[in-house]
Design a binder for these strands. Structure first.
Lengths: 144, 144
DNA sequence: TTAATAAAAGACAAAAATATCTTTTATTAT
DNA sequence: ATAATAAAAGATATTTTTGTCTTTTATTAA
């Protein structure tokens, strides 16, 4: 469904949200990598990119690391997906046709419209900060 | 959503269904490639594999080519997807967690269960032979 | 039986995705 | 100011996916 990059990105962002909450705590790349069970250097690259796009905040140096400010905590998983994989997953044709459209539909066009819409609305409704409590209670998991 | 391989596979199978219908007509790889606008050698490889798995029939030599027998025409898009991409798209965790489950759910586990189910049932209901008429009438398209 | 045809099989090539390592820059604590 | 820290940036490596070409095998028609 999503690329590896995107899977790691979502897990990392939710993890950072959980660990840093509202405060000005920062979490380092090693803790993130082990916390979501991802390759350290790889997730570093991904967060670098998300940081450049302003989806996550970071500071260098001692006590530095990543965190989410108040507005970033309100971002949705759809925002993360879009930043990483673009919106082809929300818009592209299920059979890879460039010119697939209402007027020129592929055989699964109408079904996919419904499924995509559900996917999109679901991700749009899920804010990064929404999972903290359940993660803390171990009702949800980000690794294994 | 699907791999390129899978996209081509679905398009090719539906195309073969349309062109060969019930009769014992066969359609060659070049016609398939141009009919669905895919790389010729690549779709050849894909159909080779599907042929090995019995999802499509073929004969070599003059007047040879690919076709779908009566039972193959009843196969669903889900069967094609499973043969090509496996069933990770129907079953795997949306965030790539190996041990994601009801007891150990990832943050999007429950939403994804619903979306996946819709996807699966939709593909399961769509039989290869179902699109022929609308393709003939140019209400559906397999290229561009 | 032979030549032509078309898929099967196998080898190879290019591109993209995934993953790792090294150097640089900014920040902080001493 | 200086040393230590941690992310940013850049370079490189590996694997997977996608795409192409060549040779072999089966089938048919002449």
């Amino acid at each position: 469904m999503f690329s590896k990059t995107c899977e790691y990105a979502i897990r990392a962002m939710i993890f950072i949200a959980q660990k840093t909450k509202e405060g000005d705590i920062r979490i380092g790349i090693k803790d993130i990598a082990s916390g979501i069970d991802s390759p350290e250097y790889f997730i570093a690259k991904i967060l670098q990119e998300l940081s450049r796009k302003g989806l996550v905040q970071s500071v260098k140096g001692p006590n530095g690391g990543f965190y989410l400010d108040h507005s970033s905590l309100q971002q949705s998983l759809a925002d993360v997906v879009r930043a990483v994989d673009g919106d082809k997953i929300f818009e592209g044709c299920g059979l890879g046709l460039k010119q697939c459209s209402e007027k020129c539909p592929c055989p699964i066009h109408h079904d996919f419209k419904r499924i995509r819409k559900d996917l999109y609305r679901t991700l749009e409704k899920s804010k990064l900060g929404n999972f903290t409590e359940e993660l803390d209670k171990q009702l949800l998991f980000l690794r294994r």
